[in-house]
């Protein structure tokens, strides 16, 4: 099932001789359970692509479809609802609310969507438990390590069965080992059916993805998707 589809998407900033196409005629499809990484030099349009995919920005031309629905057909309220219900965002900084515990931060995402606080809290605790984060549920963000904060932010981004997770350099501020644990968590979400798009400079992290897309000057400059390689011989990677 296709979760995200970009069809000849262009996003232009400025006009006249200052006109810059941050994303230039990019097409991309991401299925449920698929992990796509986007790489490219600074200013190549990676983050703009992610904002367009998540409905945080509107394309100048081309279509962005989330679970088959054209985002251009939605007004701001409709877009906000789709974002809340279907899309989770993770950025380099976890941006947790400091006055709320980890579990409350996660539950808030559900409460904003009209779920009763007690039900939301149960859902949040279940998810944290499942992600191995139960011990930090009652802890405030200031007492969490960077890696723990980032993993709680991922929990917040995926709660409520959202089908698309968009991550912009989620490991950028973390040390190597902690970064690995965040990457494992992304992989785990993917294995349970979430579509994941990861923007990263880290080629080792990108290589965990099913497909790696390269952006250059807003254009797709190449794509790496391994054929059934040695991993299929070892029978380690199930066809998702």
């Amino acid at each position: 099932m296709t979760v995200l589809e970009l069809d000849c998407v262009t996003r232009v900033y400025g006009s006249g001789h200052l006109r810059v196409a941050a994303v230039d005629n990019v097409s991309l499809r991401v299925r449920a359970g698929e992990f796509v990484a986007v790489m490219g030099p600074s200013g190549s349009g990676k983050s703009t692509l992610l904002r367009l995919a998540g409905g945080l920005d509107r394309a100048t031309s081309g279509r962005v479809l989330l679970s088959g629905r054209d985002l251009a057909s939605l007004d701001e309220d409709g877009l906000a609802t789709v974002r809340r219900r279907q899309v989770g965002f993770v950025f380099q900084e976890a941006n947790l609310l400091p006055a709320l515990t980890a579990a409350e931060n996660v539950a808030l995402a559900l409460e904003l969507d009209g779920v009763k606080p007690r039900v939301a809290m149960t859902g949040a605790r279940d998810l944290l438990d499942w992600l191995g984060l139960a011990p930090v549920g009652n802890v405030f963000p200031s007492q969490l390590s960077g890696g723990e904060q980032q993993r709680v932010a991922i929990a917040r981004a995926v709660i409520g069965g959202r089908s698309l997770l968009l991550a912009d350099e989620p490991t950028g501020a973390l040390d190597a080992i902690t970064g690995e644990s965040v990457m494992s968590l992304l992989g785990q979400r993917c294995a349970s059916g979430c579509a994941v798009v990861l923007v990263t400079h880290n080629v080792r992290h990108a290589a965990r993805a099913d497909r790696v897309m390269f952006l250059n000057d807003g254009r797709l400059a190449g794509e790496a998707a391994p054929p059934a390689g040695p991993e299929s011989l070892l029978g380690t990677e199930q066809d998702r």
Partner: peptide, 9 residues
């Protein structure tokens, strides 16, 4: 990167 994906798996 394709080779790296294989090794990563």
């Amino acid at each position: 990167v394709r080779a790296l994906q294989d090794i990563t798996r």
